[in-house]
Simulated assay, not measured.
Amino acid sequence: MIFTDAERGYLSGQRLARLATVSAAGAPQIVALGFRLNDDDTIDIGGPNHAASQRYRNILGNPKVSLLIDDMTPDDPAQLKPGWGRGVEIRGVVETLTVEVPPVSPEWFSHDIIRVHPRWVRSWHIDPDNVEGGSRKVG
Rank of each mutant, 00 (worst) to 15 (best):
L16I: 15
L67M: 13
G26Y: 09
L68I: 12
T96Y: 03
T4A: 10
Q29T: 12
R115Q: 06
G83N: 12
S12P: 05
V88M: 07
E7D: 10
A27I: 10
V93C: 11
D75C: 07
L67R: 00
T96G: 10
V131L: 04
E100F: 06
L19S: 05
D76K: 02
V131Y: 03
I126L: 13
T42G: 14
L68D: 04
N130G: 09
T73R: 12
D44K: 06
V88S: 03
V138G: 12
R15W: 00
G13M: 08
G26N: 10
S135I: 10
V93Q: 08
T21S: 12
W108D: 04
G9M: 07
Q54I: 09
H117F: 09
E89I: 13
I59G: 00
R36A: 14
Q29F: 11
P102W: 11
A51N: 08
I30H: 12
A27Y: 08
P102C: 10
A27E: 15
D127V: 04
S53N: 06
L33P: 00
A32V: 13
R91C: 08
W84T: 03
I114T: 14
N49E: 04
I90S: 04
D129Y: 05
A27N: 14
S12G: 09
V93P: 02
V104E: 02
R86L: 06
V99H: 09
R18V: 15
S135C: 10
S53A: 13
G87N: 05
D5T: 09
